[in-house]
Simulated assay, not measured.
Amino acid sequence: MNISIGKLATATGVNIETIRYYERAGLIAAPARTSGNYRSYRDQDVARLRFIKRTRDLGFSVEQVRALLSIAGEKGRDCGTVEVIASEHLAEVDRKIADLAALRSELAAAVATCGGGTVAECRILEAFSPSAKA
């Protein structure tokens, strides 16, 4: 089956500009062209782009996705490298969650200090000022 870039975008939920970016980044191969010079994608392009979209939705970097795609093409290979990539990404997600929890705590503490009043007396703005951290 050969489909246009628009139909590929619809089938995968990836916008056209992102598809073109993935082509330039080498994540998907440059497609064949029709006689009218339109891109023409195959079923395997749909499957590959769905894989890319899912991994990107999970927060994997383009380089990590490239590595996962490379490994996925070697069916007999040990999957230890995949586990390492996923574990490293999980550790990064955990770090981001910890950073967000600390941010939330600091923001909640600032909001809790609000006693109303005027901007001149605003405890939230005061907590955000550079001198408040010094």
Rank of each mutant, 00 (worst) to 15 (best):
P31Q: 05
E17C: 00
Y21G: 07
L27A: 05
D45T: 09
A25Q: 13
S87T: 11
I124R: 03
S40W: 01
S4Q: 05
L8V: 01
R95P: 03
L103Q: 09
I28R: 10
I5Y: 03
G59P: 07
L100Y: 13
D57Y: 04
R123W: 00
A11H: 06
A120Q: 06
F51N: 14
R123M: 02
A30Y: 00
I16M: 09
G80S: 10
H89P: 04
K7W: 01
V111N: 09
T18N: 10
E88N: 10
G116H: 13
S129L: 06
S131M: 09
A127G: 12
R95S: 04
E23P: 05
A91H: 07
K75W: 00
F51I: 11
A109P: 11
L8F: 07
L69E: 11
G59V: 10
I71G: 12
A101H: 14
R24W: 06
G59T: 08
H89R: 03
S35Q: 14
D94N: 02
C114I: 12
A25D: 05
V65E: 07
A127C: 11
G36Q: 13
S40Y: 00
A112N: 12
L100S: 08
A120H: 04
L8H: 03
I124C: 02
E92F: 00
V84H: 04
Y41Q: 09
R95A: 02
G6T: 06
V46N: 10
G6P: 01
I97L: 04
Q64T: 12
E106S: 15
I28S: 11
F60R: 08
A67C: 13
D99G: 03
A25G: 05
D57W: 02
T118Q: 13
Q44T: 15
A9Q: 02
S129D: 13
M1Y: 15
L27W: 01
T81G: 03
G73P: 14
A101W: 03
K96H: 03
